[in-house]
Computed example of a mutant assay.
Amino acid sequence: MGTPNFAPISQEIRDHRDAGSPVWRPLYDDGRNVRFAQFPEEDLRRPASVWGRPRAVVLQNASDPAVWWSTDLLLHKPEWLDNPLGPDITSAIHWFPFVTFWQTTVDMAVSYGVEAPHGHRYGANPVDGWAAIVPPAGWTEADTERLRRHIEERESPY
């Protein structure tokens, strides 16, 4: 959830993602074992191919600066600013040497001040992730929905 850009496994998956999939929602090995999601109810159902075992879910908001921060931003345009942009990335953003690095650095300090699933706020999305990979015996979609609502009602605004 919100895995930093420098995490070796996330970096490996993004670097070796299936051709044509965006870095902000990478498809790896046709989604056979690993799936990325910002909107789990939709994203975890894609692709339509069989989702095998073991399974892993990576919750990754396209607008999460913790996911994208890197010293590379100082001098290199990042892939997450290529088209198509992530669903919550404004088209008004442009890469500028040094500037984008500092904007992303500052964004990390305030990225929890937005509503989930944006910035570094993931809200109740882990419920769907866990239900997709390790549901308790007899767990149903209704159980997932009930737990999601319970967490959403109690989520702190900070």
Results as ranks from 00 to 15, higher is better:
F36E: 11
D15R: 10
V114Y: 03
E115G: 08
A92W: 10
R121L: 00
P65N: 02
G31I: 05
R53Y: 03
A48T: 03
Q60F: 08
E41T: 01
D107H: 05
P22T: 15
E79R: 14
T100Q: 06
V58K: 00
A137D: 01
W102V: 14
P47E: 14
W51H: 07
V50N: 07
V127I: 04
W80M: 15
F98D: 03
V134W: 03
V50T: 12
Q60Y: 05
N61I: 11
E153N: 11
I13F: 13
Y28L: 03
A37S: 04
P54L: 15
R154D: 04
T100N: 07
P8W: 14
H150E: 02
T90K: 08
R32A: 11
V50D: 09
R17D: 04
H94F: 09
P22W: 15
N125M: 09
D18K: 11
D128T: 10
T144N: 02
P126V: 10
D43E: 08
F39N: 08
W24D: 14
G20E: 07
F6A: 13
T100G: 08
N125D: 12
I151K: 09
A131E: 00
H94M: 07
R53M: 05
R146F: 00
V106R: 11
A109L: 14
A37Q: 00
P54A: 15
R154Y: 02
F39T: 00
P8Q: 15
S156A: 02
G129H: 04
P157I: 14
W80R: 14
R148F: 01
V110T: 10
A19R: 12
G138V: 00
P54M: 15
G31D: 14
P78G: 15
V34N: 02
A37Y: 00
Q11R: 08
T3V: 13
N83Q: 13
G31Q: 09
D143A: 01
D82W: 04
T71A: 09
W102D: 13
D43S: 06
N5Y: 04
S63H: 00
R121Q: 03
V50I: 10
V110L: 15
P22Q: 15
D43V: 01
A124G: 05
W130A: 10
I133D: 01
S111R: 03
A48V: 06
N83M: 13
R146M: 02
A7E: 05
V67K: 01
W95Q: 02
E155S: 04
E152D: 09
A131Q: 04
A137G: 03
W139V: 01
T71F: 09
V106C: 06
I93W: 12
L75Q: 05
P22A: 15
E41F: 01
A37G: 07
P47A: 13
L59H: 01
Y158M: 12
T90L: 11
A124N: 05
V134L: 06
A109W: 04
E42S: 11
N33E: 08
W24E: 13
A66K: 06
P22L: 15
W24F: 11
I93L: 14
L81P: 00
V99D: 06
M108F: 02
L74R: 11
E153F: 08
E152A: 12
H76G: 05
F39P: 15
V34T: 14
A116Q: 07
V34W: 03
R25H: 13
G129V: 05
S63I: 00
H76Q: 10
